[in-house]
Simulated scan of single mutants.
Amino acid sequence: MSHSESRQGHSEQDDVDEALKVLLVNRRDIVRRGLRAVLEDSEDLVVVAETAHPGNDPAGSPRAAPDVAVIDAADAAATAEALRKAHAADGGLPTIVVGHDENQTRRIAAAATAAAYLLDDARESEVRETVRRVARGHGGATTRSAWRRESRSARPDVSLTLRERQVLGLISGGLTNREIGAELGLAEKTVKNYISAMFAKLHVAHRTQAAVYGITHGMPSSAPSDADD
């Protein structure tokens, strides 16, 4: 049987049913159009609905229930809450937050309990693979989109001192070693020593992994007055 013959009777709705279905929520038209073009360049992904704001009805009637939502960091909190309510009956809808600044987008994604985050300058292949993995329940695909995966790579049962927790919280807030030292009244070399000790305890190799651990474990963003040095 030829390919053309095998496609006889295969409707557009059949293609939608077979593909992973995406909802786009982004106030920036150019970003939304770009995401649609990138996603629908692959046969296994289809955008079933899109809207500029979480309070608006998606453009057109969704052709099928979405498997994943790709949302704007600027409206992530409101969008995530709206999606939780709308999809509560079917167990919720996994989300991916898209933003410009990595530290800010990572924090927003954590606060919105998103499955992953992506930056505006992500490669097209990274966008598609992240959407596939999240839609299938696997979380983020790369370092920049995998804050949940990064947090799981760290040891969950470590015991950090109060000062180490404080330093980790400030790392999660995007501060540099010098800024952390100024905030805590410590020499930059001392901050580096704390970070080295934490990396060893957490079994992480870089700041992104440590920052993700801090976000997902609620590390404080200010030093206790009686910090244990």
Rank of each mutant, 00 (worst) to 15 (best):
E188K: 14
Y213P: 01
A200Q: 14
V131N: 06
K189G: 06
S196R: 14
R133K: 14
T130M: 02
R163S: 15
V134P: 02
E150Q: 14
R149V: 15
T208D: 10
F199P: 08
L175A: 08
K189W: 01
V127Q: 02
A122T: 06
K189A: 14
I171V: 15
E183S: 08
H138Y: 08
G214L: 05
D157P: 00
R148V: 14
G174Q: 07
G169R: 04
S172G: 15
T208P: 03
N193K: 12
R178C: 08
E126V: 13
S125V: 12
R148H: 13
F199T: 11
T190N: 11
D157Y: 04
V204P: 05
T176H: 12
R165F: 00
I171C: 06
S145D: 02
T208G: 09
S145W: 01
L162G: 11
G181P: 00
S172H: 01
V191I: 14
H203S: 15
R136Y: 00
G214Q: 06
Y194F: 11
A122Q: 03
G185L: 01
A205H: 11
V191R: 08
M198G: 00
K192E: 15
Q209H: 08
G174W: 04
A122L: 06
Y213L: 05
A210N: 02
R136N: 10
L160R: 07
A122G: 06
V191F: 12
T176A: 15
T190A: 14
R178Q: 14
G185Y: 02
T190Q: 09
K201P: 13
E129F: 03
N177C: 12
A210K: 02
S172P: 03
V191K: 12
L175V: 04
S196H: 14
H203A: 15
A122W: 09
S172L: 04
L186G: 09
D121C: 01
A135R: 07
S125M: 01
V134W: 05
K201H: 13
S153V: 12
V212M: 06
T161H: 08
A182L: 10
S159L: 05
A211W: 03
V131F: 06
V204C: 07
V158E: 04
R136E: 14
T143M: 08
L162K: 12
E179R: 13
L175D: 09
G173N: 08
E183M: 03
A187W: 01
K201C: 09
R165Q: 10
R155A: 13
N177H: 15
S196L: 10
G214A: 11
V212R: 11
Y194H: 15
G174K: 05
S125T: 13
T176K: 15
